[in-house]
Computed example of a mutant assay.
Amino acid sequence: MNTNSTTKFPVSQLDFSLEIKGNETEIVISSYEDHFMVIATQIGAMGTVLYARKEEGVSINATFNVSVIFGKRDEPMLVACARQLIEHVSVSGSSKPLVLSLGLKDHSAETLKGIISAVIDNRMW
């Protein structure tokens, strides 16, 4: 895994690449003042972009909202990936929302688990 970390005002960024199921996968994690952005691509482009946030309310149990900004709206596994990442952000104590871009050749559960694991291992929250 190749890793490059830069801290530049106002955005801290970490980018690295790894192989997931035979596909070279580039991941960029950026921490903005008001949100996190994760780009994972195997195609050299952004692909489907999702927005995930924790709902603030009076409920005891946390509620999360994930929506597709643009791209594939009929891929529940992409939504599940965003939900797992925003839940991890929330458990870690941050209330920032997440913008997630997935440009993938392979949308299998194994690929998405590999992306989730890589992002959590290199988290910036």
Rank of each mutant, 00 (worst) to 15 (best):
S59V: 04
V49R: 11
L78M: 12
E56G: 00
L78Q: 11
K54D: 06
K72R: 15
H107L: 05
S95M: 07
G93T: 01
V28H: 04
S92W: 01
H35V: 05
L78H: 10
G44S: 11
S59F: 13
E87S: 06
I27L: 13
G71F: 09
H88Y: 11
A62L: 05
K96R: 15
N65P: 00
F36W: 02
S59Q: 12
S94N: 08
Q42M: 10
C81A: 15
Q42L: 09
T111M: 14
A82V: 02
L78D: 00
D74I: 02
G103Q: 04
L100P: 08
N61S: 10
I27A: 07
N61M: 13
A40L: 09
I43V: 14
G93M: 09
N61F: 14
A82R: 08
A109V: 09
S101N: 14
K96M: 11
L112V: 05
L102A: 06
D34A: 10
G103M: 12
E55I: 12
T111I: 14
N61R: 12
L112T: 05
V89G: 01
I27V: 15
I27Q: 04
T63Y: 03
S59H: 12
V28A: 05
S30N: 13
I69T: 10
V66G: 00
P97E: 06
A45R: 13
F64V: 00
K72T: 08
T63M: 13
A45L: 01
H88V: 02
I29H: 00
S30W: 02
I43P: 02
V28S: 14
L78I: 00
G47C: 10
V79Q: 12
N65C: 03
E75R: 09
E110F: 00
L78T: 07
V58N: 11
S95T: 14
I43E: 13
E33I: 09
S30P: 01
G57T: 02
S101D: 06
I69C: 02
E87R: 12
S95L: 10
Q84G: 10
A109M: 05
I39S: 07
Q42F: 06
V49E: 11
Y51K: 12
L100T: 06
S90F: 06
A109D: 09
S94F: 11
F70D: 08
E75I: 02
V58K: 13
V38C: 01
S31G: 12
H35C: 09
S59L: 13
T48G: 11
A52P: 04
S95N: 14
K54Q: 13
Q42V: 08
D106Y: 08
E75K: 05
V66E: 04
V79D: 03
Q84D: 14
A40M: 12
G71I: 08
V68I: 14
K105P: 01
S94Q: 03
G57Q: 09
A40W: 07
T63I: 12
C81P: 09
A82T: 04
S90I: 02
